[in-house]
Design a protein around this nucleic acid. Structure first.
Lengths: 123, 123
DNA sequence: GCCGTATTACGATGGCTATCGTAGAAGGCG
DNA sequence: CGCCTTCTACGATAGCCATCGTAATACGGC
């Protein structure tokens, strides 16, 4: 067995809560692909693997978007086996910017509805 | 006399309410200069001339930022004499993205307080 | 130990964009 | 009419960034 309590795996850099900047978060959310990722993560209330979020771009580009989101402090990621699980940093975001995430998610949903009325899923 | 009731001056292009896209708004707000402009406009509840908002950049760059905000649908602008007055499109934004603008403004304020505690004015 | 799956690193590329300075247009004022 | 203030247009430049393909790495299972 592994000597440590947690396997730890490779560590990924995450900004501390106090280092998260509003401009960075807004910029991260201003890309359609990344907004889609965030909406998907918000809908699935558990962590998801990168490959669970389907994007119409190459794998490398998907990785890039996940990294931007992580470095902006929007999501947290850690390795679990061969997958990398991602989840929203809801607590941190809500503490720093109350209501912001929910407003953005609601706005995204509303805009989707306006464009494709009756669509159930995202984008 | 001019045939129309309003002098109209030069006209400026504004996106219709239905053409305003969330991603564009988020992107417009993700620049520190533009965020500062928006905060200033929100604080002063009247319209302001471009030159009333002091930015640490050149005049041309300021003009550029105002245009980005206008084209994203965040502000509206019209000429009045030698000045160009700008104001937030609060009604449109609140209708499309309820609560979003207020969340962003509150988040910006909170972040400012966190960084420069006790500062009264913006940024 | 070998293989397949999942993700990353690297390098390249094209496009967007924040910034500047200078020159010019629009309008008020003496 | 000339001047000043305000804003805009036009290049130009440098930096960032979304995207890709290929090669490499990490891990679990056989």
């Amino acid at each position: 067995m592994t000597p440590q309590t947690a396997p730890a795996a490779r560590a990924l850099e995450h900004p501390e809560r106090t280092a998260i900047r509003l401009e960075g978060v807004l910029h991260a959310l201003s890309d359609p692909m990344r907004l889609h990722v965030v909406r998907t993560l918000a809908a699935a209330e558990t962590e998801l693997a990168c490959s669970d979020v389907e994007l119409p771009v190459s794998k490398s580009t998907t990785t890039h978007h996940f990294r931007v989101l992580r470095e902006a402090g929007v999501i947290e990621q850690n390795y679990r086996g061969t997958s990398k699980m991602s989840g929203l940093r809801r607590e941190d975001l809500d503490a720093l910017f109350p209501n912001l995430l929910d407003s953005v998610l609601a706005a995204a949903e509303g805009q989707c509805e306006r464009i494709h009325p009756g669509a159930t899923a995202a984008r």
